[in-house]
Design a protein around this nucleic acid. Structure first.
Lengths: 350, 350
DNA sequence: GAATAAACTTGGATCGATCCAAAATGTGCG
DNA sequence: CGCACATTTTGGATCGATCCAAGTTTATTC
């Protein structure tokens, strides 16, 4: 399969056909400008020389447009890790849908080897799937390429799409309160409440909710709803864990043995809690209600199917893709969530 | 976010720093060749002008290497469709793993708008996930880029990775025969046995198994195993359908009411058959055994979990990626399958 | 201090194609 | 036939960076 003869270029074609480079170029890019017979002849020569149209590299340099969006997964995930993560995957699906419509491609740009991917990626815009890669975001800004940040709102000068996680989690807790639950347990990602952790790169720190993280919003949603019923979130047993940490489910059940409902910040954690509860002889939802966050396929297929807040990942991806494709004025979108009530929540045991 | 001033280029940096283009270039690409203080100065100027390193476009044109693999999904699938297909997804995972190791990226190149994607994609090799895109394969050959075809063996001059589906399906049927089954039903994709449907582009048609399709291999595996027990596959009721066609399950159960085991060519079809059987009051596997092909996650989570032939999709992807990355002499790999026995198969009812 | 070696810097050519203004060719009409 | 005008074709410049041979500066040594 290795072919060592140098590949044909436009110049070769032009020479062989007895026309100029420009004309040969026009044959492929602007056929209307070239006389039909010349066009035909050049095409014939081209195919006899095994030339299959202009090399994308040269064309790219000239045109500048690549027709590809780069998506940066959170943290140190590789491409394979990212694909395996159902929440990321939903976003990717939304992005891909929009890209399919306009014929653009999607490139997953992992940050495994430290910074650098964003600096050299062949794309013409970026979607940051989380606001945790400040160096990479700064690179995108420096490259003057449009970008959008998901699940955070870094400020008025930065495109963003986020989900109203606060309202979603509020609704989830409200749902449980309405079912009579009063004793809860929480598995959270973060316990930070105070000032925002992040601020937009290259800018002054914003005083308000700049960089507010989606997981903080979730906690606030819980807190708001609980407060409405006179419960302080500070009195609710809480375990902090990474989204896939297996121990968290066990820990929260030990720490909150009285709880009739467990609030979790991801669907996987919700499912883990149900598994752990079952192991301990608890029947979900009769003895224990569980809610998650994000409506990944696993949530619908779990046993019992999980009540969860639909984080609208696919829609978020769609909007993010449209924002960078349009490349208009700054947009800061907020998507409303939906509470998906399934069978992991029920009336509180009396 | 829109910045209208023209972006800085290497030339601007060089002028501003009082050095030549070449030196400025070396600062970024070969810092060792430049005196430390000059290096520092150029870097300072660069960052003050908002220059974040060499533009990948120019660099690419010069270097030629893109460090990306293009994968072409079957048929007319878009990117989103492809991602949603679990069999394709497994292959993609394997490819991504290998690409992560070497820092290459993966581009899904759909063929939605007819031919063209392969001609213009910015990649340096291609993986064809099926042998059904002859025009695209021809384009890859014309572009002189290495490529590999999955699930087919187009000939001695073409890289290929396929799975020994024949042996796998043979094993599946053997498993059922050992359980006492003698009356079968088949849901197939293709009923063609005769000469190969495809031949490698740009070459003479090969007489033997050139272009042998994986689905034909599956049928042959069934036929071989059945013949070993004196059963002709021509006497087995068969339904042909697309992989996701919902009706096939119903049809085969109507057409083969006596069958104690149903052979299907995909896990999804196997799951559909189990669903349909359940609807009709049959208990799987007590009344009916079912086998599928490809070990997608759904197969493990179905009810009951599906006995299926592991098509080694991820491994196939890994090998395909390595083949095009190494770009050595032609390789024609065959991977052995594994029969994954779960709970959808049992002793034949007496 | 001059010869020699080493380190650093530079201009020009190059990658492959496209754009643009000017030149060549072809057409219509008085 | 000659002039204005439309259609094709062309050479040169350009996109942004890298490579290479040659030139310049600095350091080393006798």
């Amino acid at each position: 399969m290795a072919d060592t003869t140098p590949p044909a270029t436009l110049l070769h074609i032009a020479r062989a056909a007895g026309v100029s480079r420009s004309t040969a170029s026009n044959v492929f890019s602007h056929p209307s400008r070239v006389r039909a017979e010349v066009c035909e002849k050049v095409r014939a020569v081209a195919s006899s020389l095994g030339y299959s149209g202009p090399d994308p590299r040269g064309r790219l340099l000239r045109a500048g447009k690549i027709h590809a969006i780069g998506i940066i997964p959170p943290g140190k995930w590789g491409v394979a890790d990212s694909l395996k993560n159902p929440v990321f995957f939903l976003q990717l699906l939304g992005i891909s849908e929009v890209c399919d419509e306009v014929g653009a491609s999607v490139l997953i740009i992992p940050d495994k080897r430290g910074s650098g991917g964003v600096q050299t990626a062949l794309v013409d815009s970026f979607i940051f799937s989380r606001f945790d890669q400040l160096a990479e975001i700064e690179s995108a800004r420096l490259r003057r390429l449009p970008y959008v940040v998901m699940d955070a709102d870094p400020g008025p000068d930065v495109n963003s799409v986020r989900v109203n996680a606060r309202a979603g989690c509020h609704a989830a807790v409200r749902h449980l309160l309405d079912l009579g639950h009063r004793r809860f347990g929480i598995i959270s990602f973060l316990r930070e409440f105070g000032p925002p952790l992040f601020h937009p790169p290259g800018q002054q720190r914003k005083p308000d909710n700049a960089g507010m993280d989606i997981d903080q919003e979730k906690l606030r949603g819980y807190a708001d709803a609980l407060a409405g019923e006179g419960i302080s979130i500070d009195d609710v047993p809480m375990v902090q864990a990474h989204p896939w940490e297996r121990d968290a489910a066990r820990l929260i059940l030990e720490k909150a043995p009285e709880a009739t409902a467990i609030l979790t910040m991801s669907a996987m954690q919700g499912i883990r809690v149900m598994e752990e509860a079952t192991l301990r002889g608890l029947l979900v939802p009769r003895d224990l209600s569980v809610v998650g966050f994000n409506d990944i396929p696993e949530a619908a297929n779990s046993n019992p199917p999980l009540t969860t807040v639909d984080g609208m990942g696919t829609e978020k991806g769609r909007i993010a893709a449209r924002i960078v494709l349009e490349h208009g004025p700054v947009r800061r979108e907020v998507i409303e969530t939906k509470l998906v009530v399934r069978s992991s929540t029920a009336q509180a045991p009396s």
